[in-house]
Amino acid sequence: MTDTDATLSDALARIATAPDADALRAIEREFVGKDGVVASMLGAIPTLPPAERKGAGQSANQLKQAVLAAIGERESALEGAALEDERKGEGFDASLPPPRIDRGSLHPVVQVTRELEDLFTSMGYLVLDGPEVELDHYNFEKLNIPADHPARDTQDTFYCDSPGSKATLLLRTHTSPVQVRAMERLEPPFRAVVPGKVFRQESTDASHEHTFHQMEGLVIDRNVSVGHLIGAMKTLLRGIFKKDIEVRLRPGYFPFVEPGFELDARCPFCTDGCSVCKKTTWIELLPCGLVHPNVLKAGGLDPEEWGGFAFGLGLSRLVMLRYGIDDVRHLLGGDLRFLEQF
């Protein structure tokens, strides 16, 4: 056995038992590095008799090749073993809780409002806005509800004072004032919806709140009939509940529409009566009707030429129906435990 053979078998043995890549690098440096065994073998060649030089060179090179090859092999073996190890997945517990990622939320009223706005804009409705602090004139007078009209009693209005203002101000009791504002501003025919905050002076409980949200709808055109109103309301309900809903119109009294209706929808939550529909299978969903000729006149339109229909959707109520919310006060209460659910 030559010295070279001995060196080689020593190297191979150490390579075979090297525990990791660092150990392999050390062995590599020791044998084939700048000052390594192979380098010193090559460095000793000039001192050898010329006849041995070639052989010595060859065996140094062979040693180098053999060491590098063995290191390469050991390296891939170690890598393979490491991957195999990783595959074992030791200590993994899938049931540990993931880290908490708090997320934000859009207010549920905003979510439903947007959904309806998108539905209506796809049908050519404009989305309008109107003042929350409103003139009595628009909230009542122009809607065919003159002073001392008995309907005013049922409205529980917050009348307001504003320094420097002589007009009779109030917090709008419905989004309907925007009907006349829209007629005054827009060229007929047009279609519009008005989402917004409305106010009623009443004591609050789980189903009553002095501040809530509505969406008014108004279509002004020639030859608009109750049939068109029914068609539009069915389309609306299909959009809200994602299925066809049977509806019925029954007389309802609202001074700014004539005829006026209450629209009931077949309860989407049951077939034979539940707590939502109070066992009747009908849900009173929205007041609507043909725009009263006096309101058209107040909006500057000729009732002989133009007609239309209007409806008022209770957004807060719809949100409560949609999510089964049992207390209307949660909507504006700002409780994070409520908001985080949406």
Partner: peptide
């Protein structure tokens, strides 16, 4: 990641 609130007037 903010929550939207709607307040009273």
């Amino acid at each position: 990641r903010f929550h939207q609130v709607m307040g009273y007037s």
